[in-house]
Amino acid sequence: METDSIVSMLEPLREPGAVHWWPLAPGWWVLAIMMAALVGYGIHRLWLFHLRAAPVRAARKALISIEAASFSDAERAAELGLLQRRLAIGVRGRKACAGLTGRPWAEFLNSLTKSKAPYFDGRLAELAYWPTVASQDCTDALEATRRWLKDLERPG
């Protein structure tokens, strides 16, 4: 037999079918599950950070409203003291700071920031409880609170 006749008896070549992308190979499933877990963990951490930073955000908004309100100096100082107390309790808990007054209270407020700069001294920390407050003392307390809130350590 001739080679041409043998070749003519062969079936024509068939192209293989297209390789489908689905179902995925097991390695892709493992990678997809790992990526989903990583994204879920990241979202969870962001949510926790958002929750922990809520008292600081609320205090910054309250400071803006205290600045805008038409309070007397004694009322403004009382509001600033209340804002500081609420924020300290919100960040560190009632047991850590509820009983502090005077110099220990000022040191506690100063310890909440990353930069260990002294924002408050004993006088500014007790200003909220004075019956009469000088305008300059109130301005000093407002500025110290503004700087303190700006530098407040991020929770988390």
Results as ranks from 00 to 15, higher is better:
Glu11Asp: 13
Asp137Asn: 05
Lys116Met: 09
Leu149Ser: 10
Ile89Glu: 11
Trp148Leu: 03
Leu112Pro: 00
Arg60Cys: 06
Arg57Val: 08
Leu82Tyr: 10
Asp121Pro: 00
Leu80Asp: 04
Arg86Glu: 14
Pro118His: 01
Glu75Ile: 01
Trp148Glu: 02
Met34His: 08
Leu127Phe: 11
Glu143Arg: 11
Gly17Ser: 13
Gly102Phe: 00
Thr139Ala: 12
Glu143Ser: 07
Asp73Tyr: 10
Gly122His: 11
Ala141Arg: 04
Met1Trp: 11
Leu82Ser: 13
Ser70Arg: 10
Met9Trp: 15
Leu127Pro: 03
Leu38Val: 09
Ala96Gly: 02
Pro55Leu: 10
Glu75Gly: 05
Leu51Asp: 11
Thr145Cys: 03
Val133Leu: 01
Thr3Val: 10
Ala25Lys: 14
Ala54Leu: 15
Thr139Asp: 11
Tyr41Glu: 10
Ala36Arg: 02
Thr139Ser: 10
Tyr119Asn: 00
His50Glu: 14
Leu112Met: 14
Glu75Thr: 07
Pro23Thr: 02
Leu149Tyr: 01
Asp73Ile: 01
Leu63Lys: 03
Val133Lys: 01
Pro12Tyr: 11
Pro12Asn: 10
Gly90Cys: 01
Leu152Pro: 05
Gly102Ile: 03
Leu10Ser: 15
Arg60Asn: 08
Glu67His: 06
Met9Ser: 15
Pro23Asp: 06
Ala53Thr: 08
Ala144Pro: 08
Ser135Lys: 09
Thr113Asn: 02
Ser72Glu: 10
Ile66Ala: 13
Ala78Asn: 08
Leu109Lys: 06
Phe120Glu: 01
Gln84Ile: 01
